[in-house]
C-alpha cells in the first residue's frame, strides 16, 4: 500500500481531497432510500439526482424561489439549502408523495381546476408549500395566504389562481 501510493504521487499537482462518502438514510414518501452520499450533496440534489424523484425542482438553488419546497415531518422547507447528510433518518414528502396515483391531494385537483399554473415548474413547490401552510394553521384569510405563500415565486404570474385553489380547499376543510 505504502509503496503504491509513493509511486502514484504526483509532485506537480497537489491532489485535492474530496469529501468522504457517508450512508444517508432518507425516507421519501414512505419509501426508504439508503444513499451513499458526500456531505456536499444538497437534499434537493439527493432527491433529484440520487433518489431519482425529479418532481421537486431547482429554480435558484439559493432559497430565493421556493421551487424546491418539500415537507419534512410535515413542515415545509427549501430542500436546496440543507445538506442531505443533515437530514439522515428524516421523513420527507415530495410532490410525488401527495398523490397515490389514483387519488390526488385536494390541492392538486384544485390547482388543475383553477388553472393555478402555466408552465408548471414552480407548481410542485407551490403545492408542497400550501400543504405545509395548511399544517401550520396560521392562514385564516386570503391576505394571510398571500403573505404565507410569498416564499414561492411563480414567474408565470398564476398567483390569483393559486390563491383561489388554496382558498377553495381550505373552505372545504373547514
Amino acid at each position: 500500500m505504502t509503496t503504491e501510493s509513493a509511486v502514484l504521487e504526483e509532485p506537480v499537482v497537489k491532489k485535492q481531497e474530496l469529501p468522504e462518502f457517508e450512508l444517508v438514510n432518507l425516507t421519501i414518501n414512505g419509501q426508504s432510500f439508503k444513499l451513499k452520499l458526500q456531505p456536499w450533496v444538497s437534499l434537493l440534489d439527493a432527491i433529484r439526482e440520487y433518489a431519482g424523484l425529479t418532481g421537486t425542482k431547482k429554480g435558484c438553488d439559493h432559497g430565493q424561489c421556493g421551487a424546491c419546497t418539500v415537507l419534512i415531518n410535515g413542515k415545509r422547507i427549501n430542500s436546496c439549502l440543507t445538506l442531505a447528510v443533515m437530514r439522515d433518518g428524516e421523513a420527507i414528502t415530495t410532490i410525488e408523495g401527495l398523490s397515490d396515483g389514483v387519488v390526488n391531494h385536494p390541492l392538486q385537483d384544485a390547482f388543475i381546476e383553477h388553472d393555478a399554473f402555466q408552465c408548471g415548474y414552480c407548481t410542485p413547490g407551490q403545492i408542497c408549500s400550501a400543504v405545509g401552510m395548511i399544517n401550520e394553521g396560521r392562514a385564516n384569510s386570503l391576505e394571510d395566504v398571500q403573505e404565507l405563500m410569498s416564499g414561492n415565486i411563480c414567474r408565470c404570474g398564476a398567483y390569483n389562481n393559486i390563491n383561489a385553489a388554496i382558498m377553495e380547499v381550505k373552505s372545504k376543510m373547514a
Binding site: 431519482g52 425529479t54 390526488n104 392538486q108 390547482f111 388543475i112 388553472d115 408548471g120 407548481t123
Partner: peptide
C-alpha cells in the same frame, strides 16, 4: 377546458429538460 397536461404538472411527472436522467 382544464389543461390536458395539468395532471402531469401537479403530480411532478411532467419532465422538464433537467429531469431526464
Amino acid at each position: 377546458v382544464s389543461r390536458v397536461d395539468g395532471l402531469a404538472k401537479v403530480t411532478g411527472s411532467a419532465k422538464y429538460s433537467a429531469d431526464f436522467k
